[in-house]
Computed example of a mutant assay.
Amino acid sequence: MPVWIHILVFFGAFFMMEFMAWFTHKYVMHGFLWSLHRDHHLKDHDSWFERNDTFFIFYAIISIVFFLLWRYDILEIGLAIGMGIFAYGFTYFMVHDIFIHQRFKIFRNANSRYGKAVRRAHKMHHKHINKEHGECFGMLLFPYKYWKK
């Protein structure tokens, strides 16, 4: 299979994960698994870890399954899919957990209009502390309604 197909599949998997993250957040995290996601909104604990952190394990397992399918010659394109999922997860962690929520104290002085808009958009999502209103699609890519001069 040509390399360009692997590259295309990698980016396809990466961008498909944005839809999966939105879908999972709206219908699973703010749905039947709200009990795991709730502590991310309410901060009713003193621990650095949250029950919400268990969701990353789900996507990590899916990524690992694709790596194994590739490794054991079951799915040639499995490496590209697994890497796309992994790259999205890493990007999500860097933006959501480090940049927005400051779980590690780096990127604190990032003061671009875009960065501020992303943080403001996410803060608007977190003002809803209940299961309802879990919508957050496009806040990372299109936070422009939260720009301030």
Rank of each mutant, 00 (worst) to 15 (best):
W4V: 11
I5W: 10
H6K: 10
L8E: 04
F11R: 00
G12H: 02
A13L: 07
A13S: 12
F15R: 06
M17P: 09
M17G: 01
F19A: 14
M20I: 14
W22D: 15
T24N: 14
H25N: 13
V28E: 00
M29Q: 13
H30M: 10
G31W: 02
L33N: 09
W34P: 10
S35P: 04
S35G: 00
H37M: 09
H41F: 08
H41G: 07
K43C: 03
D46F: 01
W48M: 05
F49G: 07
E50G: 00
E50H: 08
R51E: 12
N52K: 11
N52M: 13
D53L: 09
D53E: 06
D53T: 05
F55Y: 14
F58Q: 07
F58K: 11
F58P: 04
I61Y: 04
I61G: 12
S63K: 07
S63R: 11
S63M: 13
I64E: 11
I64T: 15
F67K: 11
L68H: 07
L69A: 03
L69W: 01
W70Q: 02
R71T: 09
I74C: 01
I74D: 07
I77A: 03
I77G: 06
G78N: 02
G82S: 05
G82W: 02
F86V: 10
F86K: 10
A87G: 01
A87L: 01
Y88V: 06
Y88M: 01
G89W: 04
T91V: 06
F93C: 09
F93Y: 15
M94P: 00
M94I: 14
H96I: 03
I98C: 09
I98A: 01
F99M: 15
Q102K: 14
Q102P: 05
R103W: 10
R103F: 03
K105Q: 12
I106K: 02
I106Q: 01
R108D: 13
N109C: 07
A110E: 15
R113F: 00
